[in-house]
């Protein structure tokens, strides 16, 4: 904002912005925590239905997406190192790779959801309500909410990374002021972290 004169501290406090980001991550963790709580209760109440419904999901796509996210987490982590090593070109390249991987993840997700829609499975669909047990309705309800909210976080993460990339290019984010890139990285790892738990809970029920 323009009237930066009004307030004081012109210092750049790297620790403060990192702490702020971590606090935000805690909030996000508990946001998803609420969903995991709902999931655990309903899985406990409907173990058999969750197993049946889980077999509808495509393990291969799930596993591929897991690996894609893990690799993208590595590339963004490496980009913070390369920024500190003052290798601007490599930083930009690594961030571009991260964004591409995120995009591939979303495309996979799009096809995965598309297949479900083709089978007549979406929240509140007739097929779901008429032909499936209550446990299966809950499973798919939670599946769409949790992966959907996760996908939303992927999109937000991509936007943050694009902003960071832009500022790295302009030199506003550099080895002396790396906070934005580091926070983008932390946010991206959070997205990864949540997927690490979503994957076994939805795709690995046997």
């Amino acid at each position: 904002m323009e009237n930066a004169t009004q307030h004081s501290d012109p210092h750049y406090d790297q620790e403060a912005s990192k702490l702020g980001m971590w606090l935000f991550i805690f909030t996000e963790l508990l946001l998803f925590g609420g969903l995991f709580l709902v999931y655990s209760i309903y899985r406990f109440l409907n173990p058999e239905a969750f197993r049946l419904a889980g077999e509808e999901l495509n393990l291969t796509i799930g596993a591929i997406n897991t690996i894609i996210l893990l690799v993208s987490s590595m590339t963004i982590a490496m980009s913070t190192s390369s920024l500190q090593k003052k290798n601007k070109g490599l930083t930009i390249f690594l961030l571009e790779v991260t964004i591409m991987l995120a995009l591939i993840f979303l495309i996979n997700k799009y096809f995965e959801w598309g297949v479900k829609f083709d089978h007549g499975i979406w929240p509140g669909s007739q097929h779901l309500i008429n032909d499936m047990s209550k446990g299966e309705i809950l499973f798919f309800g939670l599946y769409f909410v949790m992966t959907g909210l996760h996908a939303l976080h992927i999109i937000v993460g991509m936007i943050i990374i694009i902003v960071a990339l832009n500022k790295v290019q302009k030199g506003i984010v550099n080895e002396n002021r790396p906070s934005l890139l580091e926070n983008a990285g932390l946010y991206w790892h959070l997205v990864d972290l949540i997927w690490i738990f979503l994957f076994p809970l939805f795709y690995l029920i046997h």
Binding site: I41, Y42, P123, G124, I129, G141, F144, V145
Partner: peptide, 17 residues
Amino acid sequence: LERIFGIGVFDPTLGGD
């Protein structure tokens, strides 16, 4: 989401509690 789509998580007729 329950109100818009009927995902079922809190609706007893769809298995929710």
